[in-house]
Each structure stands twice: as C-alpha cells, then as structure tokens.
C-alpha cells in the first residue's frame, strides 16, 4: 500500500509538470501583483494572439534573479515596481535598447537616458493633510519646511516604507547626503510620527492623530472610493520640490529575449491608451501618455509635469546608501 502511495504521488507530480512544459510566446517577470497584471495580460493576448506566461515575485528578488540568469534568462520582459531596480538592471547590461519611437514623445520624467526601459505608470509623492486642522497658509512649500517648529508633532512619515526610501534616495541625489541627514534628524527631533506605511498615515489624519503626512498619491483615492466624505485632502509642494518626486513602475525588454519583436509589442501595449486608462482609472496611478481620460481625483497631467522635480530615474538605484543614512539618523 505504501509503495503504491509513493508511485501515485510520483505519477501525479509528473502529470502536473507535463502541461507546464509547453512554453508561451513571451515570459514576463513581474514585480507587480497578479490582481493588477492579470486583466492586462488577457487583454493583450486577446488583441494580439501572443501568449504570455507571468512569473510573479518581489521586484528586487526578480531583479537579482535576472542578474544571476544573465544571458541564459528565459525572460523576455521585466516589469518592476520602482526605478531603482530598473536602473540596476540597465547598469548590469541586461536590458535591450527600445526603439526610440516608444519613448521619444514621453515626458522626461518617464524615460531613462539609456533608452533601455520606460515607465509604464507614474506614482507621485504628495503631502496629505486634514482640511479642518491645517490652514491654507500652513501647506508647506517644500518637504524641507516640515522641520519648522509649527509642524512639531503634526507630521506623519514611514521611514521603513519602500517608496519613502526612494524619495530619500532622490533627495540625496538632488541635495547631497549631509543635507538629507540633517533633514531626517530635524524631522525626528520635530516629533515626526512614525507609521508603518502610507495607508495607516492617511487613516491617521482622518482619526486626528496627525495633520500632515508624506505619502504616495494613490492611497487617498482608494479611501475616497469607499467613503466620499473621507476628511483628508492632498496637495503637491511648490513646483519642482523634491517632495513631489514622481517614481515609476518600469517596463523593459531583456537582452536575452529570443522574441524581441513580440516583447516590444507588449511594451507598446502597456503604453497604449487602453492600458494607460486602466492604470489611472482602476489603480489611481498617473498615466505616462496624454491620450487618456483624466481621472478626476488625480492632478492634471500637465500640472504633474510642472510640479515634479527633474531627477534622472536611473540614479535612484543606491538604496543601500539610503538605508545607511536612515540608520545613521536612528530611524531604522
């Protein structure tokens, strides 16, 4: 009986493995979650007849995997959640050059200078605030203003959160390590309240614990979705301030791809108005192209370009330096 159990298990395992051997036309390594990616994939397959197999994982771990695989990688495409990972792969020479008509019409904040990858959607940083407790004149012009006495104990932040850390990396690139460290220490001594992530900060404003918070732009709309009277609003800092950093989710074709034509077609699909409409309409991220219907809860496309600081996204790869800085400031 036990022997038959062993045999049965082995046979079952083999049967399970067999159908998976049939390869799809394209293999995508996705750092973005299944719930968001899946509808887009089926749309693409329907439109083009090109089949896509997706490996879901952590953005960073998939980037390390791609480095390990090198030119032997079975992947054709990589879709990462932040610019840092894209920059690291580009630097390692693993990304294929994209045809320049893909990105030449996109705004500078959405392209890489290497032309190796392109943003699929934008995720802006904003200051969220309580319209009841924060006066109009109290809205800060710069993230650097928040160390001011009048904000003492009223600001929330999430030093352990990935997008906050990308923002710190950008601040280091733009304003050097010393000034960034001074800001971190200033915030800390000004009683900045530490939260776990963006969602809890927005909730914290609603519950009256803090009046301001440094968050990504797409969380508040998710709250407003279920409760239109949710007592929080958000705004940008002054134009060009580092606090308005626009980070991206990026898409790239891999150098190892044996089906580049189809892979490039997938990139074009993500930049098509249908996909862009989905990003802004369903997940409240910023579109990278103009030809979509504006999501009323997000800022206008042109306004976004005015407010965002000019940062080369390829420079956001030094997360280790940022972690060290956060450690020096006693925040990690």
């Amino acid at each position: 009986m036990h022997k038959s159990l062993f045999t049965a298990a082995t046979v079952a395992a083999t049967l399970l493995a067999a159908p998976l051997a049939s390869a799809a036309d394209l293999t995508l390594y996705s750092g973005r979650g299944e719930s968001m990616v899946e509808p887009l994939i089926s749309q693409f397959e329907q439109n083009t007849g090109i089949s896509v197999a997706v490996r879901y994982g952590d953005t960073a771990q998939l980037a390390v995997l791609l480095q390990e695989e090198g030119r032997r990688s079975p992947a054709d495409l990589y879709w990462g959640q932040d610019a840092g990972a894209m920059g690291a792969l580009s630097k390692a020479g693993l990304l294929a050059e994209l045809p320049n008509d893909i990105y030449e019409n996109l705004p500078g904040i959405y392209t890489s200078e290497t032309g190796n990858w392109v943003a699929a959607s934008g995720r802006a940083r904003v200051v969220a605030y309580s319209p009841e407790r924060a006066g109009e004149d109290e809205l800060p012009d710069s993230a650097f203003d928040l160390v001011d006495e009048r904000y003492e104990g009223r600001v929330g932040w999430a030093p352990t959160n990935g997008s906050f850390q990308s923002f710190i990396t950008a601040m280091r690139v733009e304003h050097c390590d010393e000034r960034t460290l001074a800001w971190l220490e200033g915030m800390k001594s000004n009683g900045a309240v530490t939260f776990r992530n963006n969602t809890t900060q927005v909730q914290g404003i609603a519950d009256g614990e803090i009046d301001f918070a440094l968050v990504n732009s797409y969380y508040l709309p998710r709250f407003l979705d279920s409760d239109a009277d949710f007592p929080v609003e958000q705004a940008f800092f002054a134009d060009g301030d580092i606090g308005n950093l626009v980070n991206v989710a990026g898409i790239a074709v891999l150098e190892s791809s044996d089906n580049r034509e189809a892979a490039v077609e997938f990139v074009r699909f993500l930049l098509s108005s249908a996909a862009q409409q989905y990003f802004t309409g369903n997940v409240y991220e910023y579109p990278v192209t103009r030809d979509v219907i504006q999501n009323p809860v997000l800022e206008d496309f042109d306004r976004l370009l005015e407010v965002s600081p000019q940062i080369d996204l390829d420079d956001l790869e030094d997360l280790e330096g940022t972690l060290n800085l956060l450690r020096d400031a006693g925040l990690l």
Binding site: L20, A53, R55, Y56, G57, Q61, L65
Partner: peptide
Amino acid sequence: FLLAPTGYTTLAV
C-alpha cells in the same frame, strides 16, 4: 519565486 515553473503560483506566492 525563483525556481517554480513560470506561472506555477502556489498558495504562499
């Protein structure tokens, strides 16, 4: 994450 067949999503993943 790294070694499962592409598309072979388990509960944990």
